[in-house]
Design a protein around this nucleic acid. Structure first.
Lengths: 121, 121
DNA sequence: GTGGCTGCAAAATGTTTGCACGGAT
DNA sequence: ATCCGTGCAAACATTTTGCAGCCAC
């Protein structure tokens, strides 16, 4: 089953790869796999909660093996996505529910800035 | 200049329209305008800070006439995007900078849940 | 005539889908 | 025989781009 191959590949890649990058990595060892299969399996793995999807504006979705509670920052220069480990802002969901009347199920924050590597240049 | 037409249209639409919807509205009065022009002008207006772009996962970008500080919630049932007026979480940027080493320039939060209208059903 | 804005069509990007096949039950 | 997962190519959705024409200076 290709799903396990895709899953193991994502679990090994710790740099928020896009579907395309996952595909390239999978294809390196299993050249006959098709990109559609990678997409289909990534979608399934996300639905089953085995991996996480990270959407970034103006770019392909990224996939994250790391299911623990964390946020993401994208470097506006190099495009890399880094993890941010930080406690959840307090009462955030409650405040949004009070302000909007919406029953909030989830939320995502994407930070954007210049990463240390790019600052040096 | 078509830019003014696009701008005025966005300023009148208070429901976070997509480029396509803006185009439809513009085209209703100016049938000869092309979709590329709408896209080009939306991009320019965003760069100049006259309107705001709201990216949503799995969907076309939306445009917001409202430049004041606020967040967005998308209803997971009907897809509508609502405004959330709420003070910024305190020290959020500082905490992210401390945790990640990235110089944070901006961030966006997209909440997702069930809106009052959809809750009734 | 130079530069900027436009329409149009084509390209580019990222992702999903229809379909036929092939293996396991 | 049936069902599910797959490869392939085509379709799809959104956005950008190349190019020729036009208008204003």
């Amino acid at each position: 089953m290709q799903r396990q191959i895709v899953l193991q590949t994502v679990l090994r890649m710790h740099d928020h790869p896009t579907a395309d990058i996952v595909y390239a990595s999978v294809a390196a060892e299993h050249p006959s796999i098709s990109k559609a299969t990678v997409y289909r399996n990534l979608n399934q793995l996300v639905s089953q909660g085995e991996i996480r999807r990270v959407s970034v504006p103006n770019g392909a979705d990224r996939y994250d093996f790391n299911l623990t509670d964390h946020y993401h920052v994208r470097c506006s220069q190099c495009g890399k996505v880094y993890d941010v480990y930080m406690p959840r802002p307090e009462n955030l969901i409650d405040r949004v529910e009070d302000a909007s009347g919406v029953d909030v199920q989830r939320y995502d924050i994407l930070f954007e800035g210049v990463c240390p590597a790019c600052k040096k240049e």
